[in-house]
Design a protein around this nucleic acid. Structure first.
Lengths: 160, 160
DNA sequence: TTCTAGATGTTATATTGTATCATTATCGTA
DNA sequence: TACGATAATGATACAATATAACATCTAGAA
């Protein structure tokens, strides 16, 4: 989970600023605001939901079109992830780390959209990649999105 | 891949009819038409695309609203799958089988939407389920959706 | 036949995502 | 400082996707 207190947020934003510079890009005011919105939301949110979060909780006035563009920027700079499963976005939970990570496995609660970002064990990802190659495909991304129910939300019918 | 010749299609539709009866539901004319559309498409298609396929290739006149409803029905009766990653649908590739299958792993070409439905090895799914449980989540579904590029479509930048 | 539940038709609208062009800000260079 | 180029954002329109709500029809049970 992402820390949501003020101090932690500022620390993350500062780190994100550095990370952008290292990649030859800039974390502008608007971009920082969108990232802050993601951190405050602390769950997967759609671009439109994010404009609401930014307005209602932070007082930032952003247009959805800008939010889409900025989310794309954040994704390219490894500051946010787009969840294809739900067309929602989350802040990367590793902004303050500086080491390389295993491919992420996103556990997404279908009810409340809480997301946990855990690591996929290498042999598992290897196996998935192998199956993919054997079928004549090439992996387009190395992350897995898993639809779940979190402990706070009851599963309609337990699968696992 | 789904067989697309006329005879195979009719055989699948007949089997689907039986499968519905066994589940206490009915494969009505419209539902059969939508399933036929999925079989003819032979790739992942959106609900709106499917209305076009049904109209242009089969001469069936269906409204998007009906298609959505019928797709939901087909999914509940294990005749079709909804791919959350792309909000598209495909016919289940196992309609003519009568045995239990491993959880499916969908390999989805991001470019042409071709889908291959392969099986997830049990230990892999077990590992994913275990990681999920440890993080305090419960699996909502037992299938994996993997975004890929197929051999016919060039990968912009190879990942695997 | 009549009633009922399920299936489908119809319309309206909400939600999500992109395309396009105008405007503004930033920064190197003269 | 002024200028010009590039990046960033604003603003508008619209395309694509999805659902809500209510009307109508149809098959089968009573």
């Amino acid at each position: 989970m992402i820390a949501i207190n003020q101090q932690a947020t500022e620390s993350i934003l500062a780190q994100a600023h550095q990370q952008c510079l290292a990649l030859g890009s800039k974390l502008t005011t608007k971009r920082s605001q969108v990232l802050e919105g993601l951190l405050v939301a602390a769950k997967a949110v759609s671009a439109y939901e994010l404009t609401n979060v930014c307005r209602d909780k932070l007082g930032y006035d952003l247009l959805p079109m800008s939010v889409y563009r900025i989310l794309e920027f954040l994704e390219n700079n490894q500051l946010a992830h787009r969840l294809n499963t739900s067309n929602k976005y989350i802040a990367c939970s590793h902004i303050t780390c500086d080491h390389q990570h295993q491919p992420p496995q996103f556990l997404i609660c279908k009810t409340c959209n809480k997301v946990e970002e855990v690591e996929v064990p290498t042999p598992i990802m290897e196996s998935v990649a192998k199956t993919t190659r054997k079928a004549g495909f090439t992996l387009a991304s190395r992350h897995l999105e898993i639809e779940c129910y979190c402990n706070d939300c009851d599963a309609p019918e337990t699968v696992s």
